[in-house]
């Protein structure tokens, strides 16, 4: 197969395409052929300018799906487009909640496998080879599609760099959602936004994260205070999110956010595989943990073997006295 057409699932939040989708558009251009986007929601037309600027010539507008969960209707509309004969060679999907749901549904509708956790893509001759981190990123597997039909890749955030190319606004083409019956019967009754202050976790230049070593929810304030002093965002390991100490939106790791800041400070985090996947790409890593054998030290540029309750308060005092 030669790469004639690449589609990108372009999720839209607050009127603009999400960063990961723009990263995928950059990669789609690099793969060659025509680049087209697929979007849903009330703001698709408004987002066409940004999508065009990042190289999409067309955006298929699945429309406002109202209170439906996106997985079923979006996959349904995409499957119709493919069955009509306009399908791509490759479909790139961001690793998000809705992206995974869409890819899963589409996989069955088109009878094609989905390749997830992609951290690299190369066009080799007529084939697309994908890279995946295994065992928390300690090993990288390369895989290739051997079947027919669009190759569906679910790609992790920050695998590629977004880059505007100054293209004209993408042409908006309506794509209808077919009748789906029971699969499309889940409805959103209410949406809750858990507000956070300071820079966004996945965009911040410095991220300070806390883990189980903090000992209790009440000590997370230390992390927030330190984050504020270094103009960073406060993050968390899955352990303390699952324990209910902090909202999910703080989670860094496999099931949370992927971050690649200039500096990552891990406080009381042992460094489970699940966590390392989300932060190993940071330029610099400082780890503070009392267990000398914690895996986090194997990726840290600077490791402080000590109690977070002793080290972090002193660090905060020292930084405060400077400002």
């Amino acid at each position: 197969m030669s790469i004639d057409k690449v589609w990108v699932l372009a999720e839209i939040a607050d009127g603009s395409p999400i960063t990961t989708s723009l990263e995928l558009l950059a990669q789609a251009r690099a793969m060659g052929g025509t680049v087209e986007a697929l979007s849903w929601g009330p703001d698709t037309a408004a987002a066409a300018t940004a999508l065009g600027d990042h190289g999409a010539t067309t955006v298929y507008d699945i429309g406002d799906i109202g209170d439906a969960l996106p997985g079923a209707p979006v996959a349904g509309a995409i499957a119709e487009l493919v069955k009509a004969g306009n399908g791509p060679d490759v479909l790139l999907v961001p690793t998000t909640y809705d992206g995974r749901d869409v890819a899963g549904r589409l996989s069955v509708k088109l009878d094609v496998p989905v390749i997830t956790n992609v951290v690299g893509l190369d066009v080799v001759g007529d084939e697309v080879h994908s890279q995946h981190g295994l065992f928390g990123g300690a090993q990288v597997a390369t895989a290739r599609f051997t079947g027919a039909g669009p190759a569906v890749f679910v790609v992790r955030a920050k695998t590629f760099a977004a880059e505007p190319v100054g293209g004209a606004p993408a042409q908006v083409v309506a794509a209808a959602v077919p009748e789906l019956g029971a699969t499309n019967s889940a409805v959103v009754l209410a949406r809750h936004v858990e507000e956070r202050s300071g820079p966004k976790l996945d965009e911040a230049d410095v991220v300070v994260s806390g883990g189980r070593g903090l000992g209790g929810a009440e000590h997370y304030a230390l992390i927030e205070e330190l984050a504020k002093l270094v103009h960073g965002a406060a993050g968390a390991s899955r352990a303390i999110v699952d324990a209910g100490w902090v909202p999910y939106s703080h989670q860094v790791g496999q099931t949370g956010k992927t971050v690649k800041p200039t500096l990552y400070i891990a406080c009381g985090i042992s460094g489970a595989t699940q966590h390392l996947v989300g932060m190993k790409g940071s330029k610099n890593i400082i780890a503070i943990n009392k267990d000398r054998d914690a895996p986090i030290f194997s990726v840290a540029d600077l490791g402080i073997v000590g109690d977070v309750h002793k080290v972090v308060p002193k660090l905060i005092e020292a930084l405060k006295s400077r400002s």
């Binding site: 295994l134 990123g137 090993q139 990288v140 390369t142 895989a143 051997t146 079947g147 030290f297």
Partner: peptide, 21 residues
């Protein structure tokens, strides 16, 4: 319909300086 063609060790991050507090 996917085939793993290669598995290799990822670029390792090197452990850096360790300071015992």
């Amino acid at each position: 319909r996917q085939e793993v063609t290669d598995v290799s060790a990822a670029e390792e991050r090197k452990a850096g300086e360790i300071v015992v507090d």
